[in-house]
């Protein structure tokens, strides 16, 4: 092989290396979010109500306990499940029952869920129940216009004075 051919061959090999690096470092393009869609992220932490309310121990009950455990107020630590529902335009988008974490099931339940929806105006209804008995304790319903590519975050805060419940952040 002549010198010229050799250098040409080497150049070709280096060019191949560079082309592979140059091409795959940006191509092919990846479409993460299809055009005309938006993202709903349902995410919050929430500690549900205790399963059983606190009660005052009677003297007889106290006497049965070890001396260092004799506390008048008895609060069972276990919390209820948190039931969450999300509807869009009357159809259920998501439904989940969150169990309280922790060994004694007393922790705050948390959720993070991404839901792909078509862009446009929709009626969203979010419901949450965090106690054993009764119906949903928190409901929020709202018409929202989601631009394409938009991320709407649905948060929940029980400790906002005046307006506890769902927050739609668009």
């Amino acid at each position: 092989m002549s010198h010229l051919l050799k250098y040409l061959g080497q150049g070709l090999a280096y060019a191949l290396f560079a082309v592979v690096l140059g091409y795959f470092s940006t191509s092919p393009e990846y479409t993460h979010l299809p055009a005309d869609s938006a993202l709903v992220k349902l995410s919050f932490n929430h500690a549900a109500q205790r399963k059983k309310p606190c009660h005052e121990r009677t003297d007889a009950e106290l006497a049965k306990l070890a001396p260092n455990m004799r506390i008048r107020k008895d609060c069972p630590r276990e919390r209820s499940d948190v039931v969450v529902e999300l509807e869009m335009d009357g159809k259920q988008l998501y439904h989940v029952v969150l169990h309280p974490p922790g060994l004694s099931h007393d922790g705050a339940a948390s959720i993070y869920r991404r839901l792909l929806v078509p862009a446009g105006t929709h009626r969203f209804t979010a419901r949450l129940k965090d106690k054993e008995e009764g119906d949903f304790s928190f409901v929020r319903e709202e018409n929202i216009t989601l631009a394409a590519g938009r991320v709407m975050v649905i948060d929940f805060k029980a400790d906002v004075p005046g307006a506890p419940g769902f927050i739609f952040k668009n």
């Binding site: 280096y14 290396f17 560079a18 393009e29 990846y30 479409t31 979010l33």
Partner: peptide, 29 residues
Amino acid sequence: ALLALSLIKPALSHAHADLALAPGVIRLD
């Protein structure tokens, strides 16, 4: 080879991150 590639096809950023927007089409490495 890397220098030549760097001059021909400089590495560029996408638009500034915006967590209120979901990235649509991405030039992935």
